[in-house]
Design a protein around this nucleic acid. Structure first.
Length: 173
DNA sequence: AGGCTCATGACTC
DNA sequence: GAGTCATGAGCCT
């Protein structure tokens, strides 16, 4: 049935930084939430024991997601990523793909990303697409800084951006 | 250094 | 269409 298309599993990921929440479609990881009041509420509502019918495939993806997330939180490059099923416009997907090529411990500016996707003047739009990134940390939107090498913004809160970059060994201005 | 203005593209309503 | 930006460059003081 058509409504099955968007069905997802929602699974918590406990970490030393709090409980993240991952959501999956039949094609892969669709969303990752930082620990927060909102995600905590959702996680309480749909904890693992309330989802009896999670497929083995999704369990496998979730294991990969969990280990990749914990590695990045510890400042290490993950060995493997789960398949991603990102919903967005073509422009946003282009930006997110560019973000995935930024190696851990390195940064780009919004302008550099704009150039890289062939739209050198779409710098503000790149910022917007970063803010719309549904899978923070694994799609490293935190590695995008403003042109002056200053922090810029972060939808998950600037404290998170600072912490992630610090753990990756990036020094800010 | 800090502040202001303006061009700018994508997105939302 | 107008308003909103996780920008950037230019131009002041």
């Amino acid at each position: 049935m058509y409504f099955m298309k968007n069905q997802c599993a929602e699974l918590p990921i406990p970490t030393p930084d709090g409980q993240f929440v991952a959501r999956y479609s039949e094609n892969g990881l669709t969303e990752l939430d930082f620990p927060s009041a909102g995600s905590a509420r959702r996680a309480d509502r749909t904890s693992q024991r309330d989802v009896p019918a999670v497929s083995n495939q999704i369990r496998g993806w979730h294991h990969t997601t969990e280990s990749a997330l914990k590695k990045i939180l510890a400042g290490n490059e993950p060995t493997q990523f789960p398949p991603l099923d990102l919903n967005g416009t073509e422009f946003q997907k282009n930006v997110w793909n560019a973000l995935r090529r930024i190696r851990l411990g390195t940064t780009r500016s919004y302008g550099e990303i704009a150039k890289q996707i062939g739209k050198p003047r779409a710098v503000r739009a790149v910022g917007g697409a970063c803010g719309a990134n549904p899978v923070p940390v694994l799609v490293p939107c935190h590695r995008v800084l403003a042109a002056n090498k200053k922090l810029g913004g972060f939808s998950g809160g600037l404290a998170w951006k600072r912490a992630l970059l610090t753990r990756e060994g990036v020094s800010l201005q």
